[in-house]
Design a protein around this nucleic acid. Structure first.
Ligand code: FES
Ligand code: FES
Lengths: 140, 140
DNA sequence: ATCATACCTGAGTGTTTCTGTCAATTATTT
DNA sequence: AAATAATTGACAGAAACACTCAGGTATGAT
């Protein structure tokens, strides 16, 4: 039951972006070196984040990425969805989910409930919350 | 963010065991055929469940497995721990967890909180709850 | 005793997913 | 034109996953 590094990196990178941004775009290279994440790997993530309209890109010198929306409007569960990490803990609950299990399966209620918990929790946090948390830590 | 089949199978198998048991041990073969789970794979899981004192074994003809404790005393999170599936969503929060991240990392609070949610939810359900749920489904 | 049953154990294996790397291209500003 | 930086797709090593196989051991019934 691990969150993939994709999800971890995406959240970290966006917090970092929002912390260091002063209105200008931030280059992916800066984020990469500050957060110690592979440059090329980060690029893959930002392509998805752009398609998911979490960030927008500015090309050319002085370019980079910036948030596509106010940080308060970006929920953590959205970020994770966007980099393609499922939050449903078992496959039989998904669209194509075929299960060897019979209809009287009692364990479904466990995973169903667990999935809801996870979703609800991550939807209750926004990028702004995390950025404030980061600022608070920097001060101390 | 997927629960491994180890965890899924373990929970299903234990519910099945408890549903069909009438005090006598239940053979792993029965569970295997009823739940469509590989026999040899199930054996591996039950070895761990026995070591974790979730079940006890009865050898020889007519033998099998039975619960080591009342179903009401067996929490779902215990079962998952026992088959060695971590419930901590990121590695940097574990004992040997080394992280490239700096000390002002704001995302820790996300994963910390998420881990607590998952743990709390799964600790709130017992094998008895699930067995009752299964019985209810069988009746309808 | 011996046979069938069923637990017990460890080694091995094919597949998939994860985590990145590399190379080449396109777009923009100076 | 030149430098910057995003964009894309192919590829690859490593690890985890989901089993399978080949035995061995303990017990009860005949
Ligand atoms: S329906 Fe998928 S485990 Fe029962
Ligand atoms: S401490 Fe591990 S991601 Fe920041």
């Amino acid at each position: 039951m691990r969150m993939s590094t994709k999800a971890q990196y995406a959240v970290r990178a966006l917090v970092s972006l929002n912390l260091t941004s002063d209105g200008d775009p931030v280059s992916i290279k800066d984020i990469s070196s500050r957060e110690n994440i592979s440059l090329n790997y980060l690029e893959q993530l930002f392509v998805k984040l752009r398609r998911g309209e979490i960030v927008k890109s500015v090309r050319g010198p002085g370019g980079g990425y910036m948030l596509a929306r106010p940080a308060a409007d970006i929920r953590v569960d959205e970020i994770i969805d966007t980099v393609e990490e499922t939050l449903v803990p078992v496959s039989c609950m998904e669209a194509d989910g075929s299960c060897s299990c019979t209809s009287e399966c009692a364990t479904q209620s466990v995973w169903q409930g667990l999935g809801n918990q996870i979703r609800t929790f991550l939807a209750s946090m926004t990028l702004e919350d995390l950025t404030n948390e980061g600022r608070r830590r920097l001060d101390s």
